[in-house]
Design a protein around this nucleic acid. Structure first.
Length: 412
RNA sequence: GUGGCCAUAGCUCAAUGGUAGAGCCCCAGAUUGUGGUUCUGGUUGUUGCGGGUUCGAGUCCCGUUGGCCACCCCA
């Protein structure tokens, strides 16, 4: 009995790790004034076909439902967001800053850092054309990764602008149907031998290599870098025109986040998609937009290989799982009064556990320890007093049960 | 969709073609009211599944399923 290929069970520790990652994502996104939204897990297949073409269907988790509708599990959040925005944008003052933590799906063979399902933080800014929005989004991406304990020695954001390439293609009068293919080749040029790239580019190879070597510079990118510098974040970013990104809908600035050591695949990526909302709404609505996504799988791998980031995660996991108090029922005849006190403490918000069947006292202390309790409260011969024991120090004192809450609050 | 490696107890892993084991975890006891350390004892297997070779297969061969990794592709 196993989960389906590429899908994960989240046992308590894994779930606590996930909670830690989600909590950090939410915290940082909110710091930037983003508000959370969500959408359906399942969408019409056409939503993805319209944007990316039929060939993407090969990688989609898609099927025909009982109503004969062609549907797909969402492979990414952006089309859903664009759909929601096209339908609802009049209700909101621009610009919008929205985030979501969807689980997304792809039908492909699992490999390192890549499953058939993962969670990703998606942050998008809608209705803001200025480069300051690109800078704001990139700053957020940096702070999201920083939030897990990483520094400028650990990761870098590589920023580019597709317009470097689309301008060239215009000048060279390349027919638009070839653009996608050429952008893909440039995107891949870092990972492939130069001769192969040259072969694919043909006559464009010369100017493309020239731009790749010279690097890019533009007023727009300068403004973004200046904005990051003003925030003290310039050490985390570099301009790299080799970044193109695979998705067809990006129109301007694009960026990807990498670990400095180059051990992992890209941990986050995003960019501007000014035409997508118009495209999906058949030109009913046109709004400039940009966004980025960071997934839980690669990020999790990276955290696990960085001692200090791992330490922060483990501390969070411990406290997420721990109870505060264990009620030791030393005499079964005290069970009823113990339950009354336990209920009272739980009403006060304490996380508390106790044995549900008669259990030897040493065993109960072991359980208390194992559950991470800081305090044990003994119900036994001392009644109407209870013994309050601090498990870290071993110190123990008798407290009248009606004074217990006040005592605990005072010694928290 | 293509290729490579792997599959033994809940977990990590042993076992020249010759009786399937260890550590950890879990349970119980030493200790009938005080934890983290000890010590003792105990449970757990269709060796992924199906076939073949052999006197004899966890071990060799074929198939299959699953996992990992790479490619394709990329959220």
């Amino acid at each position: 009995m196993q989960p389906l290929t590429g899908f994960r069970d989240f046992l308590p520790v894994a779930c606590a790790e996930r909670n830690y990652i989600f909590a950090k994502w939410r915290e940082v996104a909110r710091r930037y004034g983003f508000v959370e939204y969500d959408g359906p897990l399942l969408e019409e297949l056409d939503l993805y076909k319209k944007k990316s073409g039929d060939e993407i269907v090969r990688q989609l988790y898609e099927f025909v439902d009982k109503g004969e509708r062609a549907v797909a599990l969402r492979p990414e959040m952006t089309p859903t967001l664009a759909r929601i925005i096209a339908a609802n944008h009049r209700n909101f003052r621009k610009p919008l800053k929205w985030f979501s933590i969807p689980q997304v799906f792809r039908y492909e063979r699992p490999q390192r850092g890549r499953l058939r399902e993962h969670f990703q933080l998606n942050c998008d800014i809608i209705g803001e054309p200025s480069a300051e929005a690109d800078a704001e989004l990139i700053a957020l991406a940096i702070d999201v990764v920083r939030g897990f304990g990483f520094s400028a020695n650990d990761f870098v954001v590589r920023i580019s602008d597709r317009e470097f390439w689309t301008e060239l293609l215009k000048i060279e009068a390349v027919p638009s149907e070839r653009w996608e293919d050429i952008l893909q080749t440039i995107d891949k040029s870092e990972r492939e031998p130069r001769t192969k790239t040259r072969e694919r580019l043909g006559g464009l190879a010369g100017p493309v290599f020239e731009i790749l070597e010279k690097g890019g510079e533009s007023a727009k990118l300068n403004r973004i870098i200046d904005s990051l510098r003003a925030r003290g974040l310039s050490d985390f970013a570099t301009v790299d025109v080799g970044i193109v990104r695979g998705l067809a809908y990006y129109t301007g600035v694009v960026f990807e986040v990498f670990d400095r050591a180059g051990k992992f695949r890209a941990i986050a990526g995003g960019g501007r998609y000014d035409q997508l909302i118009a495209q999906l709404s058949d030109n009913a609505v046109s709004l400039p937009a940009l966004g980025f996504a960071i997934g839980d799988v690669v990020l999790g791998e990276m955290i696990h290989e960085n001692p200090s980031a791992l330490g922060e995660l483990e501390a969070s996991v411990r406290s997420d799982r721990s109870i505060e108090i264990y009620g030791v029922i030393a005499k079964e005849e005290r069970r009823a009064v113990a339950l009354a006190v336990i209920q009272q403490l739980r009403d006060q918000g304490y996380r508390l556990d106790y044995p549900m069947s008669p259990t030897k006292v040493p065993r109960q202390f072991q359980t208390a320890e194992q559950l991470g309790a800081q305090t044990a409260i003994l119900f036994g011969d001392e009644w109407p007093n209870v013994a309050v024991k601090k498990l870290a120090s071993g110190e123990q004192q008798l407290v009248p049960h009606e004074e217990l809450v006040a005592h605990l609050v005072a010694h928290r």
